[in-house]
């Protein structure tokens, strides 16, 4: 096994230390790692296991259970389209098909230039203003193909 970058190890240790007094701190720590590095590298698993005195299997199991924790970095812009029932009732599937067509990728993939990752999400809590989507950290409602194009272009250019 390749030994992780010492600076990453130190940073992970510091994040663990910041949550030392918290009960069941693994999820908050993983959120911090995800926020800081953009993904949870498999190299940090043994570091977390040692620091938290749990097995590597336990840490790996948690990291892979939750959708939010990525195994590799996402594209510079992340587009999530809601495919739950309420958004389906106002054309979410057609919007997803449109996005796949125009971006040239499938849900779960990143464009070859690394600019956009397209993902599905099941409910953003915007069920009366669907179809809903999230572009980076911002939720958008009443999406149409034209509005989606404009928002994605703006995010990519930013």
């Amino acid at each position: 096994m390749a030994s992780p970058d010492p600076s990453v190890t130190d940073r992970v240790r510091a994040l663990v230390a910041a949550h030392r007094g918290d009960r069941g701190a693994l999820l908050p720590i993983l959120h911090r790692i995800q926020a800081e590095f953009g993904y949870v590298d498999s190299d940090v698993v043994p570091v977390l296991a040692t620091e938290l005195n749990i097995s590597r299997a336990d840490v790996h199991g948690v990291v892979t259970f939750y959708t939010d924790f990525r195994a590799e970095p996402a594209g510079r812009t992340v587009v999530k389209l809601c495919r739950a029932e309420a958004c389906q009732s106002v054309g979410a599937e057609q919007l997803v098909a449109y996005a796949e067509r125009t971006l040239g990728i499938k849900v779960g993939q990143t464009t070859p230039d690394g600019s956009v990752t397209l993902e599905q999400v099941f409910c953003l809590g915007n069920c009366a203003l669907g179809p809903a989507g999230q572009i980076d950290e911002r939720v958008h409602g009443r999406l149409t193909p034209a509005r989606l194009d404009a928002l994605v272009t703006k995010a990519v250019d930013a």
Binding site: A84, E85, A86, C87, F122, C123, G125, C127, A128
Partner: peptide, 11 residues
């Protein structure tokens, strides 16, 4: 953890 589609009252 209001995950059900069609619900947003908790939020």
């Amino acid at each position: 953890d209001e995950g059900d589609s069609g619900t947003f009252a908790d939020r």
